[in-house]
Design a binder for these strands. Structure first.
Lengths: 338, 338
DNA sequence: TTATTTTACGCAAACGTTTGAATGGATTAG
DNA sequence: CTAATCCATTCAAACGTTTGCGTAAAATAA
């Protein structure tokens, strides 16, 4: 009843061969004859041989583990990214060691340290919101642990990163609204400190310029992404002489807050005012007035690229070059429900 | 520059002691004098010694890995549960190997097989929606890999499981609405096949009986949890002679669909009809008319209990007894937003 | 003092796999 | 027919750690 797991040794004994022959046969080493190779593989099947990963890891001096540090798993964006990362890592024989910073820089430091101690072969990191010191990651270079930044990337020169080109999406969003006839288009942006905010604004301005419209700075307001902050931002916009007929929101959450408040203020959504936003998250499915369109950032594709390039870096030992993968965002129009 | 990681051997050489002494000293083995124990630990610190996990796993014949199979990571409920599982596993020196079934029974089978090949020491499983054959998990008993079912559990006798008592929450939901003066309370339930549906219904009936109200079966309708199914369910209810003034929805998603449709039908939410639901998921934050209250199922606590009891099972080799941990759900009233 | 126990450490094997080097036998070249 | 070459396989060490057993020296008991 107590099934001891079968090893390479048993196969060797069974076939009167040496363990080295078995090992090589299973790996299709050229110096093994086709005949014995076949025999070995058959016997392995028969005995239900499964290579002992722990032994392999140990002997190869590799852990086949890569660390992933994310702010919050319960944010759909990260959950979808992780999902893709997991799938590919699995297929390529790697295990993911997950850590959540909960947007806390201290926790992030601890995690980086633990991951190092755990001897991960590489790290995929999406920074905590308020991380300004990156030394805990940059230190890992000493240990030859490559770090690939993902989506929330630091403003550093020599780093690997995978991220999404938000600007083009932002431009698309403006173009979309212009095509609908809107001329007063506002932007409820995130905190000025965020790179993501800068990118949205740049794309916004680009679109206006391309269409020979002049940029009115008062139509762009920053907010802290909370419900309250969004309400205040919206009220600022509605108090303008040049009142916007359309709003581009930082993301779908902000859009939902703004819509709620607009309704409370007696506005008719999609008549008096309409919304476009970023993220294209599943919540749009559940809300009464989702944004007319949302900029998809393809978390799964980003995750896939992230793990793929990290594994390339690890397996090709290309520590000289820096990988910078940027995928394009894309405006997705929502079909009108009802 | 090329930092070779320091081993126990170096410490031994440095102090002119044997490796076994070092090993024991680091583990506070009683047969090592306090003096050398101190010396060893200091030297270990000085040299930045980190135990080679791969070597330990190998030598102990354990992987310190536990598998987690979930339907969908992008469902907040599972993301939160996994988050808790990860945190505790990390603290107790275990690594999580994650797999997503995407609610596909075949994928689930594959994952179970891969996890076994990977020699996980135990498995936490939340079943795919349509899994009816559990042999791929029950087979793991042969390999002494304990399986702990989580939230979505199979109707089997001898299993470990952690789940949530939905009935009490359901009863609370009805009581809450009764207290508000409602007498015609409907239930938009899930598919009859689901255990979760049965539990909601039982709790619903219990509450009515306790309050000496008679149970009207026409007030309970099943739906397939899609938006369309929800609309149909709502229309069925609204066509009744005894029209409900309050609806308990299977979960917050169903509630949101129902609210949308009710508004389209010209009903005033919280006046003509109001809603209560299950899951207490974050989407409630974003929608115009969230349910008045929602039954919290504490995914994080469930996850925590799951990993804790599984690790107990693993480390105490208690294969005889079956653990059945049930936590209580709890109705959470939402504060009305402005 | 001698016998016995206790204390503090070392020796060596073991875990499963990989891999450079060695080996013997068969084949080919000269 | 000998020498060189090649093929298929084996040998043995190595990876880092743990642990049962052995053994000196020190402490205690007689």
């Amino acid at each position: 009843m107590i099934k001891k797991s079968v090893t390479i040794k048993e196969i060797a004994k069974e076939l009167n061969l040496s363990v080295s022959t078995i090992s090589r046969a299973l790996h299709d080493h050229p110096s093994i004859s086709a005949a014995t190779r076949l025999k070995v593989k058959q016997m392995a099947q028969e005995l239900h041989y499964e290579p002992n990963q722990a032994a392999i890891h140990f002997q190869k001096g590799k852990t086949f583990t890569i660390g992933v540090i994310l702010p919050e798993l319960s944010e759909t964006f990260f959950a979808e990214a992780l999902s893709a990362i997991e799938d590919i890592a699995y297929k390529r024989g790697y295990t993911i060691l997950l850590g959540q910073s909960h947007d806390d820089e201290e926790k992030e430091k601890l995690l980086a340290e633990k991951m190092r101690a755990h001897r991960v072969e590489g790290l995929i990191v999406s920074l905590a919101k308020n991380t300004t010191d990156y030394s805990h990651f940059e230190q890992l270079k000493k240990y030859h642990i490559p770090v690939l930044y993902f989506d929330r990337i630091p403003p550093l020169k020599n780093i690997h990163h995978v991220s999404c080109n938000i600007e083009t999406g932002s431009t698309e969003a403006v173009n979309y609204l212009l095509k609908q006839g809107h001329r007063n288009i506002a932007l409820i942006n995130g905190p000025v400190s965020l790179l993501a905010s800068k990118q949205r604004k740049e794309g916004y301005i680009t679109a206006l310029q391309k269409n020979r419209l002049k940029f009115d700075p008062s139509l762009v307001v920053n907010c802290n992404l909370t419900e309250r902050g969004t309400r205040e931002a919206l009220e600022t916009l509605l108090a303008l002489k040049r009142k916007p007929s359309a709003v581009i929101a930082f993301n779908d959450y902000v859009s939902s807050y703004a819509v709620k408040h607009a309704i409370n203020l007696g506005l008719k959504i999609n008549e008096d005012i309409c919304f476009v936003s970023f993220a294209n998250s599943p919540i749009n499915q559940f809300i009464q007035y989702p944004p007319l369109a949302s900029v998809e950032q393809f978390p799964a594709i980003q995750g896939q690229k992230a793990i793929d390039t990290l594994l390339d870096i690890i397996n090709n030992h290309t520590e000289e070059a820096y990988y910078r993968v940027v995928i394009n965002s894309e405006l997705v129009e929502h079909q009108k429900t009802g």
